[in-house]
């Protein structure tokens, strides 16, 4: 396939650091879109603020770069007005679970037909390496120079508890898995979340002595555990491991269907 067909070539090369995995996730998204044969004009990509949210700037779809954390709110409006668009939200861990945390859980609760792809690099990379809600305990950040005291969010479990229809987690090293999960999420009618773990060598790896992008991807390779295997392991064994796989895949009425039902009911009563 030709990636350049989907890119705004005048904006390339992108701003992401060497060793950053964001470009790998973008490639996965483009590969799946190419495989599904979607037209460029039928896709809307929405993002907030952050490194990950630079993604829509490089792709030649209908794109929307919104305020910090509000990408899902804008995308909800877009999906209701134009239900035929394939609305994809790309968001970082801080953007989706800190500033936009409420939008995230309420969109999951509503089960509106969006695909949210979360680039989880454990840190606010663009603004200078502040601790995000997913920074593990004890890891260093510019706002936590002696180690982060807060317990991290597990984004996939959060989305599962909030009622999302499809939740999966992968890493940038496992490109095949990422492709498969993104494809399933795109085809799902309902709120679908794909969390992709990506290295941030500049802001996270350097401070925590985890090496460059290659070494951080090697860590992902060695420390990923499938969901089924993780169920048989104890909590001590799972310390520091990345659990990958499909957490939720269920059929349920989405928001647009329920909203149409409300409109029909209101029409009948008012006749």
């Amino acid at each position: 396939m030709d990636y350049l067909y989907y890119l705004r070539k005048e904006k390339m090369p992108h701003i992401w650091c060497d060793g950053c995995g964001h470009g790998i996730i973008l490639k996965s998204i483009l590969r799946v879109i190419d495989k599904l044969g979607w037209e460029k004009d039928d896709i809307a990509m929405v993002s907030g603020i952050g490194c990950s949210s630079r993604t829509p700037g490089y792709v030649d779809f209908n794109t929307l770069h919104t305020t910090h954390g509000r990408a899902i709110a804008f995308a909800t409006g877009l999906k209701i007005v134009k239900p035929n668009l394939h609305v994809i939200v790309v968001s970082g861990d801080g953007d989706a679970t800190a500033i936009g945390g409420n939008h995230f859980i309420h969109a999951a609760r509503r089960n509106i037909d969006l695909t949210v792809i979360i680039y989880n690099n454990y840190i606010y990379g663009m603004t200078g390496g502040q601790a995000s809600p997913t920074t593990p305990i004890g890891k260093k950040a510019s706002t936590a120079p002696y180690g982060n005291p807060d317990a991290p969010f597990d984004i996939s479990r959060l989305a599962q508890a909030a009622g999302a229809a499809y939740v999966a987690r992968s890493t940038v090293y496992h490109v095949g898995k990422t492709d498969r999960y993104i494809e399933q999420a795109f085809l799902k009618k309902g709120f679908s979340v794909v969390e992709v773990m990506t290295p941030c060598p500049t802001s996270y790896g350097r401070r925590n002595k985890e090496g460059n992008g290659v070494e951080m991807m090697m860590f992902q390779k060695k420390n990923s555990v499938g969901v089924e295997r993780a169920q048989k392991m104890s909590e001590e064994e799972l310390q520091g491991k990345i659990i990958t796989g499909v957490f939720v895949d269920k059929e349920q009425n989405n928001y647009l269907q329920r909203y149409d039902e409300v409109i029909d009911k209101a029409k009948q009563i008012n006749q």
Partner: peptide, 10 residues
């Protein structure tokens, strides 16, 4: 094509 898939910079 693993290198092509893993190259973040296209």
């Amino acid at each position: 094509k693993l290198c092509e898939k893993l190259c973040p910079d296209f």
